[in-house]
C-alpha cells in the first residue's frame, strides 16, 4: 500500500438512499452522489442541510464505494445536537451539501506491521473504511471496540466480515470484557507482531491509548475531533496543541488541515486535550 496523494476537494449534492438504525440514538446513513469524491480512511466531509444549524458539521467517511456510478458513501451519526438531529430526521431521498474529502488520513501499516485499532463509541466511524482497505490488500488486524453498553458497539459484524480479529469491552459488561476498551490494549499489543496503533474515540480513551502505545514502543496515529467552523483551514476554530512532527515544538495546529489524523507523539497531551 503506497502513500497516496490528497484527493481533490469538492462540494457535492448527495442524496440519502438508506438508513440503518444502529441503536436508539445512532444511525448509519448511506448517501449517493453523481460525481465521485474518493476519500482516504480517516478523512472527513463537512455537511450542510436544511435545519441543521448555520455552520457545516464534520463527519468521518465511515465507508465508501467509489467503484462505480453513482458514488456511494456512508456516515455514522450519533445524536448530540442540532446538526446530528437534522441528519437523523432527514427523509429518504433528502439531500445534503457535502464538502470533502478533507484532512489527513491514516498511514496504512507496513508489510511487517500489524494494525491494532482502538475505537470507542462513534469513534469507530473511520475504521470501517480503514479495515475495508486492509482486507482488500489481503491484510488482517486486531480491532478493539468499546462502548457503554452492547448497543454502543456499532458495526461489529462489519469488522468481522473484513476478517479482523474483533475484541470488545463494555462498561456495563453486557458484551465482551467488562470495563474500558483500553484495558484490552496491553494484551493486543503483546499478541500482535510489530503493532501499529490507530485510535479514535473519547479523549480519556485516546490519552490512555497514547500512554500504552508509547510504553510498548508502538507507532500510534490518533484521529482528534474538535468543533470546526469551516473544515478548510480558515476559521482556526478546531486547533490542537501539537508539533508538526514528533519532537517539533507544539503550536496550535488545525484538526481539519494538519489533522484530524495526527501522530500521537506529536500531541502535547499535557496541554491538550481541552474540554470541547
Amino acid at each position: 500500500m503506497s502513500r497516496p496523494a490528497a484527493p481533490p476537494r469538492r462540494d457535492l449534492r448527495a442524496r440519502l438512499v438508506r438508513r440503518v438504525e444502529l441503536s436508539a440514538d445512532a444511525q448509519l446513513l448511506r448517501f449517493e452522489s453523481a460525481s465521485p469524491s474518493p476519500a482516504l480512511p480517516g478523512q472527513f466531509a463537512m455537511l450542510r442541510l436544511e435545519g441543521g444549524g448555520l455552520l457545516r458539521r464534520p463527519y468521518s467517511y465511515c465507508d465508501l464505494d467509489d467503484s462505480g456510478d453513482p458514488f456511494r458513501f456512508s456516515l455514522l451519526i450519533k445524536e448530540v445536537g442540532v446538526g446530528t438531529r437534522a441528519l437523523m430526521r432527514l427523509r429518504d431521498g433528502g439531500t445534503v451539501s457535502c464538502l470533502g474529502p478533507l484532512g489527513t488520513w491514516f498511514e496504512p501499516p507496513s508489510a511487517e506491521e500489524t494494525a491494532v485499532v482502538v475505537a470507542g463509541g462513534v469513534g469507530i466511524a473511520p475504521f470501517v473504511l480503514f479495515c475495508r482497505r486492509l482486507a482488500e490488500a489481503g491484510r488482517s488486524g486486531i480491532v478493539l471496540l468499546g462502548g457503554r453498553r452492547r448497543p454502543d458497539l456499532y458495526l461489529r459484524e462489519e469488522f468481522e466480515r473484513f476478517g479482523m480479529e474483533v475484541r470488545c469491552a463494555t462498561e456495563d459488561g453486557s458484551f465482551g470484557q467488562r470495563g474500558y476498551v483500553t484495558e484490552l490494549l496491553p494484551e493486543a499489543l503483546a499478541d500482535a507482531t510489530a503493532p501499529r496503533v490507530y485510535s479514535c474515540g473519547p479523549t480519556g480513551m485516546l490519552l490512555r491509548t497514547a500512554e500504552l502505545a508509547r510504553r510498548a514502543g508502538a507507532p500510534h496515529q490518533v484521529s482528534i475531533e474538535r468543533r470546526m467552523g469551516c473544515g478548510m483551514g480558515c476559521c482556526l476554530g478546531c486547533v490542537v496543541w501539537a508539533g508538526r512532527r514528533p519532537g517539533d515544538p507544539p503550536e496550535y495546529l488545525r484538526s481539519c488541515t494538519e489533522g484530524p489524523v495526527f501522530d500521537a507523539d506529536a500531541i502535547a497531551w499535557d496541554r491538550d486535550p481541552h474540554p470541547l
Binding site: G53, L54, L55, V82, R226, R227, G229, C235, L236, G237, C238, V239, E251, Y252, H274, P275, L276
Partner: peptide
C-alpha cells in the same frame, strides 16, 4: 501569535461566536 486556547468557536442562532485571538 498562538491565539486563544480552544474552544474558540460556538454556533448561535443564525451566527457564530469566535475568539481565535489572531493566531
Amino acid at each position: 501569535r498562538d491565539g486563544c486556547p480552544p474552544p474558540r468557536i460556538w454556533e448561535t442562532p443564525s451566527g457564530m461566536l469566535n475568539a481565535i485571538g489572531l493566531q
